[in-house]
Design a protein around this nucleic acid. Sequence first.
RNA 1: GGAACGGUAGUGUAAUGGAAGCACAUCGGUUUAUCAGACCGAAAGCAGAGGUUCAAGUCCUCUCCGUUCCUCCA
Length: 587
Amino acid sequence: MRTHTSGELRLENKDQVVTLCGWVNAQRDHGGLVFIDLRDRYGMTQVVFDPDNGAEMLNLARSLRNEDVIEATGKVVPRGEKLVNPKLATGQIEIVVSKLTVLNRSKTPPFLPGSTEIANEEIRLKHRYLDLRRPQLQEAMIFRHKFSKLVRDYFDKNGFLDIETPMLGRSTPEGARDYLVPSRVHEGAFYALPQSPQIYKQMLMVAGFDRYMQIARCFRDEDLRADRQPEFTQIDVEMAFVKMEDILGMIDGLVAYVMKEMRGIDHPLPLPRMSYRDAAERFGSDKPDLRFGMELKCLGEVAARCGFGVFQTTIQNGGRVRGICAVGGAPKYSRKVIDELTEFVKTYGAQGLAFFRVNETGLDSPIAKFFSEEDQQAIIAKFEAKPGDIIFCVADKQKVTSAALAALRNRLGKELQLYDPKQMHFSWLLDFPLFNWNEEDKRWDAEHHPFCDPVTEDVPFFETDPGQIRAQSYDMIINGYEAASGSVRIHDPVVQQKVFDLLGIKEEEAEARFGFLLDALRYGAPPHAGVALGLDRWVMLFLGNDNIRDVIAFPKTQKAADMLTGAPAPVDDRQLRDLHIKVNTPK
RNA sequence: GGAACGGUAGUGUAAUGGAAGCACAUCGGUUUAUCAGACCGAAAGCAGAGGUUCAAGUCCUCUCCGUUCCUCCA
């Protein structure tokens, strides 16, 4: 139907007769003359209706409304010097229309895709097809496509095979809750949608496909967040005959490739690495935003000997007093704002938030009087603080100081604009502990999953100090988000048995839960390792968004509902009967 | 399982417990150079239920919906 798109005509196309199709972004009726901004995903072009080309067509043009779909044929005409619109890529020209066809009318839309004001998200999701007409979402979808293609190209060049794995699998009650699918044929039995293709990709390694990748949909029935959807897309990778370094190097290469293709940047390699322990101590987080400093410092000795009761008792009870220093923050954080910050850290379990403004002579704070001159100077030295800075401290159990200060650090970093929001900072976090002591249940839990290979030299700790054992696992952190996660898998049955023993998983239980995987690993499994990258998050971060819904065409609300289709919804009794299901909802 | 914030014409956004206003969109009209068109006019609204009060969009309780966070997400 069309000869060109609405984004491509320029001065060089002068005098050509062209046909454009698209949506009416705006109509300007000047009585004798009508202008239409015609929009498609490529851009916008002004088309003009002149009364010289017939009153009938002019009246038709006057009847056009926002989001009507039209086909317009006419001549490309340069605009007069004063009539050029510099805001449009096509602003040098316009189309003087000789033939107008209304392809379809639109109901009055609830909101205008071309408007600068953005409707409430609930409305946008209800009419997602209109929301997706907005240039911002169009760009997001286009970027997402390009990114996925680059990823596939990269792995293809490196000899990876794209192999699909099933959506209907078996529920393995570990980790997140499964989405279940009832079987019609097998009465009372259920499939589960995959939380990840983990088990299948390991089997593909056993099968000899030593380089596998897939852009895979994953499902987890857990609470949603700004960066978390119940179904999401993962770039799933597994390699055989490799060590951890090989995986890290392969993904380093992907980062460099994507940065080069997307941004024209030669990203230096290898990507920086940090140990879990370092990250916990310096940033209180296993996914620190490394675009800025503001590291956590420990006030241990000073807190123990100062006269401030809260600090003293915290130390006596085995807790910690830690803090961060906001450079130049003293004038920006008034008492009122600090009260807000206090409420903020309380949501992370902190009891309160101590603060010290740094001045020429020492510390200015309601609790400064509890600190001797030397201790005040010691604090200033610890934070390398200068007059005008403000120091915030939290006294609590180690875990709480970490959570509260890490969240506060992220907030302050953003508020104080300590980084360029367009910057992408990639790093690896390594040396995770293999096991976590679960204080409540008095037992060891797997930090990652029970198939994660321990660092070889740490294996003797199984008998002495399991908490010391490091895992051969790795997370990629981008701008404070966990953007990828993976591990070397256990292929040695002896090591696997040690892990199961420590986790208290009995042989029968292991066989019942993952017997099919364990069995596969017994038939000549090569050493293998893999990683999974969160595609939605990568796209979100590249686009500088802070909400994953903005890079997913049809996302779900926080209650995992689809506003567009009304899913989830009740089904016919007939369907339930076929599936041997009786619904029993409490009143 | 919990916390915070929010829901006002189609959309966005106002309104000390005392007359629900503005902008865009919509409908009718005028306008030959606009591009956030201009101008004249019209129509259109307090999420639902209950309560407090002389009086409730505003205060209270519950329900529904949305957002953010905690728990959760091996």
